[in-house]
Design a protein around this nucleic acid. Structure first.
Lengths: 159, 159
DNA sequence: TAGATTGGTTCGGATCACGAACGGTAGTTC
DNA sequence: GAACTACCGTTCGTGATCCGAACCAATCTA
């Protein structure tokens, strides 16, 4: 199938990388007393506040799952939910001061761990790699793998 | 910090790739009625049978978590556990015929989905990318991110 | 006003994930 | 050979994740 006469195939390597990135999330989570999922949500909210629906779409989870994770983060004082913002029937989630502090440290720690994966490459190789990785994720149709409404979400794109 | 004058940084891209690979696992899981974790274990067992301890090390999970996942797979007739193999106090896990059939299809489907990530790259770019990714995962000290005994595992390396 | 749609929550159930404790097996030491 | 210790795996209790179905409130439609 895949022509890779020597060494590991690209897909296999990508899967292994994903596994290691997951491990980085788990490690950072243990370091700061949060689950990887909570850490992911905190990292997302670092950029800006999200409506529940947008957060759900970003995470690719079911509505109820998103509610659950946010609920725990709110219970632990890391985020706040404001009903009626911006629309009357929407709920906006944003970091508390405590949450932002945690989010920044979690993100930094995870970033640092993932960075270790690049160690085996020379500066030149890293410079070659970066635009290739960027091209992989900068596409508009990320939904190729990641169905926008998954799971059990609105069936869009099939029109 | 990281010198990437234009576009997405390598670490950010790697994190996004990991997210998409996870989504690929989830999608394949839905397609075949298994959880991503079960799919991962099935994929691992495709190569050969594992002792529980080795499987645990490969997954990077707690002992009890590994037991739980294997238990469900056994209940569903996808794997079998043989006590006293190869050592008297070890338990060997291997695929059933049904499990192998499922594992092959799950693996193929996931592989195909992850392969889509390479689409934006030309043949030449893919040829450039492959050895770089391989170098990232072919190191001996993968434990840099992935602590060998994690979590709550034997504290090794601290001697 | 009735009907449909949308944004979130609630509920029940299965799985995942962990640490602590337990029970066998094997090797050690005296 | 009787304690000690180490190792392998399971059991148990608890919390978090994840899902679909059902539900409620607020819109939009007709």
């Amino acid at each position: 199938m895949e022509p890779h006469p020597e060494g590991v195939g690209s897909v296999t390597a990508l899967i292994r990388i994903a596994f290691l990135v997951n491990a980085a999330y788990a490690e950072s989570g243990r370091e700061f007393g949060v689950t990887p999922q909570q850490g992911q949500v905190l990292s997302i909210l670092r950029a800006r506040a999200y409506a529940m629906g947008d957060l759900r779409a970003k995470l690719g989870l079911a509505k109820s799952t998103t509610t659950g994770i946010v609920e725990i983060l709110e219970r632990d004082g890391k985020v706040v939910r404001r009903s009626g913002v911006p629309t009357a029937r929407s709920v906006q989630v944003s970091l508390t001061q405590d949450g932002r502090f945690l989010a920044d440290r979690f993100y930094t720690a995870t970033h640092r761990r993932v960075e270790l994966l690049l160690e085996p490459l020379s500066r030149a190789e890293q410079a070659t790699l970066r635009p290739l990785l960027a091209a992989m994720v900068d596409r508009d149709d990320v939904a190729v793998i990641f169905p926008t409404g998954a799971p059990s979400g609105p069936k869009e794109g099939a029109g």
